[in-house]
């Protein structure tokens, strides 16, 4: 365990060392604006957003549908370009990078967990987990890999194809893949959105542990107050702006904040419906 933990320790140390204040920031957005379309159909998905993602912390992003959560995450992860402003990942300015450099950045520094369809159906679980390293031409750190696999509880399923795994198991493989490459930061867009509450809890617990025990940095978009409750910090987005944030959230506090928030947004009573119902309907889908 000590050997496996070592890389984390050393990395944290080097980053913390010379860069000073920046050391605590894994990713940041400065005055980021993202607009789709032009003229009449122009939609401003992000409106001058400033955000810092703390290293070694679990950050959740919440907000109503269409508020720009996915857009923010995609921009932070270098999957999408911004209209103006700057994005930095671990001290590297990524706005203006070419596709080749962005690809390399995603490959080496970023892990992804999507809501669904995270795995290649032609590869087995283990191959999916090591895929980012395969692509990079790196040999996986075997001890670390074993630890990740053991933590995710997939040791017995490594040779299985995704179709032979349950939805929760598939998401856990995706989490393992994100962790195995030891990225600077992991992004999840509703990683538990397709899971029932028990599987969702498994995955979230695992994400939490990887932050606590492995020092991983995670950013997760979610609609679910319970999921947000696992995070260290929740950012609330509305209309492309960060409107609020909460440290050390509990699910009740988040739910309460959301209800308040929706009430302020729309005068219609009981507007929380779409948010929670949205989450529920996703679960049932």
């Amino acid at each position: 365990m000590t050997t496996a933990a070592a890389p984390f320790g050393s990395r944290a140390a080097t980053v913390a060392g010379p860069a000073g204040g920046a050391a605590a920031i894994a990713a940041s957005a400065r005055q980021v604006t993202k607009a789709y379309g032009s003229g009449e159909t122009r939609v401003t998905a992000l409106d001058q957003v400033d955000v810092d993602i703390a290293r070694g912390r679990f950050t959740a992003i919440m907000g109503p549908s269409g508020s720009g959560k996915s857009t923010l995450m995609h921009c932070l992860a270098g999957l999408d370009s911004v209209t103006s402003g700057q994005i930095r990942i671990g001290g590297t300015e990524i706005t203006g990078l070419k596709d080749k450099q962005l690809t390399k950045l995603r490959r080496d520094k970023i892990g992804f967990i999507f809501q669904s369809f995270n795995l290649l159906p032609t590869l087995n679980a283990l191959e999916n987990i090591t895929l980012p390293m395969d692509i990079a031409g790196r040999r996986p750190d075997q001890a670390w890999l074993d630890q990740v696999v053991a933590t995710v509880g997939l040791a017995a399923r490594l040779k299985h194809r995704p179709t032979q795994l349950s939805g929760g198991q598939q998401q856990r493989v995706a989490v393992a893949r994100a962790l195995a490459a030891k990225p600077e930061i992991i992004f999840g867009d509703e990683p538990t959105g397709n899971l029932d509450s028990r599987s969702g809890a498994e995955v979230l617990t695992f994400l939490r542990r990887s932050v606590d025990e492995l020092g991983q940095t995670i950013v997760m978009v979610t609609h679910d107050p319970v999921a947000a409750g696992y995070a260290d910090r929740v950012l609330f987005l509305a209309d492309g702006r960060i409107v609020d944030e909460m440290a050390n959230p509990t699910s009740d506090a988040v739910l309460e904040r959301m209800l308040r928030f929706s009430a302020a947004e729309t005068p219609v009573p009981a507007p929380a419906g779409p948010l929670t119902a949205g989450g529920d309907s996703r679960r049932n889908a």
Partner: peptide
């Protein structure tokens, strides 16, 4: 398409 998107997201280069 989706698979290709996923591969690209996790770092498969265009050349690869």
């Amino acid at each position: 398409t989706r698979e290709i998107g996923l591969l690209r997201a996790i770092g498969l280069s265009r050349r690869q």
